[in-house]
């Protein structure tokens, strides 16, 4: 995260891919596409491609992890070796463990864990193709997959990032903007409860910029939230006569 990039990323209020400053990339969400999982979701967000699967609540092993008062939520965010330009060394690393943790903490805020004492709920998020903003995309997909699995929850979590590029605050950074921009702020948000469940920040923002980034990200999350609802309802939709 250095200063301004050498090549301008924003020209006349338009970004490299023609988006406006506060415009999301195209998002496609599909619920319930895996037969073996209890709940699942496939999500395309710009060039990101993410598959999320939920198993459980089910018996939790090892037994010492069990909690007699509530279910244990386990999340695994994983990037496929072919998901990025240079081959990623497979397996968990510092970054993916961090993302798994923040996503778990975001989801723990909405799932009624106390319904299922001693059991475990497993959420798997596989990044098949990455183009910046995968933690937001993974959280979005995971909460749709949880709902699809029939796990009781307070609400869906929508997620979206805002950032700072060429001294402009923008919504939903793509790869180039993430690499050559000045800051990135992923946010997990529950619009109907006005609750922020995930917030990270990398880069330097003034107070005003931070406020604006917050406004942008929340607005983005609201749009994502609508798409999540749409995707879930579509699974059981029957055409109206």
């Amino acid at each position: 995260m250095s200063g301004k990039s050498e090549v301008p990323l924003i020209v006349k209020g338009k970004r490299l891919d023609g988006r406006k400053l506060d415009e999301l990339r195209p998002i496609k969400i599909e619920a319930g596409i895996l037969n073996r999982a209890d709940g699942s979701c496939y999500l395309e967000w710009g060039k990101n491609k993410i598959l999320a699967a939920v198993y459980g609540p089910r018996e939790l092993h090892p037994k010492h992890m069990q909690d007699n008062t509530q279910a244990v939520l386990r999340c695994r965010y994983n990037m496929a070796p072919f998901s990025v330009g240079e081959r990623k060394r497979p397996g968990p690393d510092r970054r993916s463990m961090e993302i798994s943790k923040v996503i778990r903490e975001a989801l723990e805020r909405v799932v009624f864990l106390n319904y299922f004492p001693t059991s475990g709920i497993d959420v798997f998020m596989e990044v098949l193709q990455a183009d910046a903003g995968t933690r937001c995309a993974a959280l979005t997909a995971a909460s749709v997959a949880l709902a699809d699995a029939g796990v009781p929850m307070k609400d869906l979590v929508a997620a979206c990032a805002a950032g700072k590029v060429d001294d402009h605050i923008i919504l939903d950074l793509m790869q180039e903007e993430d690499n050559f921009g000045q800051g990135d702020m992923p946010m997990g948000y529950i619009p109907s409860r006005d609750e922020i469940v995930l917030l990270q920040l990398d880069g330097e923002f003034t107070k005003e910029e931070l406020e604006q980034a917050k406004t942008f990200a929340m607005e983005g999350c609201r749009k994502v939230y609508e798409l999540q609802k749409e995707a879930l309802k579509k699974k059981y939709a029957v055409a109206k006569l």
Partner: peptide, 27 residues
């Protein structure tokens, strides 16, 4: 992305003449 996708008739294996028993709600 700015406009939620309109639900078009989907092929989820449920035939079109069926009617829902109630409104579908999400958490």
């Amino acid at each position: 992305a700015n406009e939620p996708q309109v639900a078009e008739p989907v092929d989820n294996g449920v035939s079109a003449e069926l009617q829902l028993r109630g409104d579908i709600v999400v958490p």
